[in-house]
Nucleic acid binder design. Sequence first.
DNA 1: AATACTAAGTGATACACATCACCGATTTTT
DNA 2: AAAAATCGGTGATGTGTATCACTTAGTATT
Lengths: 216, 216
Amino acid sequence: MTFETGDISTILHQNFPQIAERELQAEVAENGQLMHFRAGEVIMDYGSYIKMVPLIIKGSIRVTKEDDLDGKEILLYFLSAGDTCSMSFSCCMMNKKSMIRTEAVEDTTMIGIPIRYVDQWMSKYQSWKNFVMLSYDNRLIELVKVIDSIAFNNMDQRLQEYLNARQEATGNALIEATHQEIANDLNASREAISRLLKKMENLGKVELGRNQVRLL
Amino acid sequence: MTFETGDISTILHQNFPQIAERELQAEVAENGQLMHFRAGEVIMDYGSYIKMVPLIIKGSIRVTKEDDLDGKEILLYFLSAGDTCSMSFSCCMMNKKSMIRTEAVEDTTMIGIPIRYVDQWMSKYQSWKNFVMLSYDNRLIELVKVIDSIAFNNMDQRLQEYLNARQEATGNALIEATHQEIANDLNASREAISRLLKKMENLGKVELGRNQVRLL
DNA sequence: AATACTAAGTGATACACATCACCGATTTTT
DNA sequence: AAAAATCGGTGATGTGTATCACTTAGTATT
C-alpha cells in the first residue's frame, strides 16, 4: 500500500459527482488521503480496527465474510469506482472490529477519509449525509440479493451471477481466477465449479483457459 | 390496524432512551402516530410504498424476503421493542417499492414517524442521527449473520438459531407455529423440519405439541 | 357422533453438491 | 532438462435435503 497527496478534487469530481458542495469537496481534498493497493493485497482483515472510510476511485475490491468456525469464506459483494464501504462506517463509528475482509481484485486507488470527518460531515453537509445513507441503502440491497441468491438459487445460477458481478466490477469480460478461487467465493467445491464451467462452455456462455474465464 | 394518539413521550422514553434530546422527544410525540397491529397482520407487503418509519414499542415482527420467481419466502430477521426498520428508511427516502414484507408475529404497537421528519431530524438532532445510523448498522450485521447461517450451517443449526431468535424476539420459550410455518421461514420442506424437531425433542432440547414448540 | 380438515410422522426415492481418489496438462522452480 | 507444484478434468461414492405418497392424530364442522 502506498500513500499520495495528488489532485484529489479533480478525481473526486469525476467519480463522486454526488458530493456536490464546494466546501465539502475542499474538505475531502484537504483531509482525504490517496491510497493505492496492488491486486491481491488485503486492505482490511477480519478483526482489525478501521481508521478510514474509503472512497474508491479506480479498481475493484472483493468483500468477504469468514465462517467463525472452520475458516471457510464467502463473497458478499464487489465494490468498484464510485463505491464506498458501508461496513466501514459502522465499524468506525462504533469502533468495532471488522467482521469482513476487503481485498483488492485489481490494482485499486481510493481516497481514505479519517473517521472523525465522516460523522462530522453528516450533520454539516446535506450531500454527504445523502451519500452515506444511499451507500448504506445499496449495501442492504446487495446483502438481501446475496441472501436471495444463496437461499433460492442453484449453484449454476449463482456461478452465472458471480461471473456477471465480477465482470461488472472490473468492466472486463475476461476474469482472471482459478476455479478454486471462484469456488471459495461461492463456498462451493472446486470440482463442482469446474464441472459447471465446463457445462457453461459447452453452452457457449464462456471460454475457458488456465486461470481465466471469458464471458461471451 | 388501529391508530391512537396516546402518551407517546412516556412510551418513547421507556423504549428508546437513546432518543435523548427533549426537543426531539417533543417532535416525536407531536408527529408520531401510535399504531396497533394484530398477530398475523401484514404491516407492509412486497411492492408497497412506505409512508412511515416505525419505532416498535411492543410485540414482535417478522421480516421476510420473497423469491422473485416462484413465490418462496425466507425470513430475514425479527424485530421487537426498541427496534426500527432500517429497510424502511431507504425505501422511504428513495421512494422505492418495498422489497420485503413485514408481518406482526404477536400483537404489536409502534410509533409511526412520517418520512419527511426522519430525514429532517437527521441533520437537526445528533441523537436521532446516531439512532438511525446504529439501526442501519444493526441491520447490516443481522443480514451478514443470515448469510453466514445459510451459507455455512446445516438445517439443524439454522433451525436451532431460528427458534432462539424467535424466543428472543417474543421473550417467550413457547413458540406458536406449525412445522409448515417454520419450514417456510427457513425455506425448507415441512418434512425436514418435522424430522429435525423430533430429533431435537429426543435430545431433550424442545417439547413438541400441535402448533407449538417449547424451548427447554 | 360422523365427517372433513389440518397438522404431523414416516418410508421410498430423487437430486444437487461434497468428498475422495486419481490423472494428465501446464507452469514454476531447481 | 528434470523435478516439483499448480491447475483442471473425471469417475465413484456419500450426505443432506426435497419431493412424493401415504398414514395417523388431533381439531373443527355438520
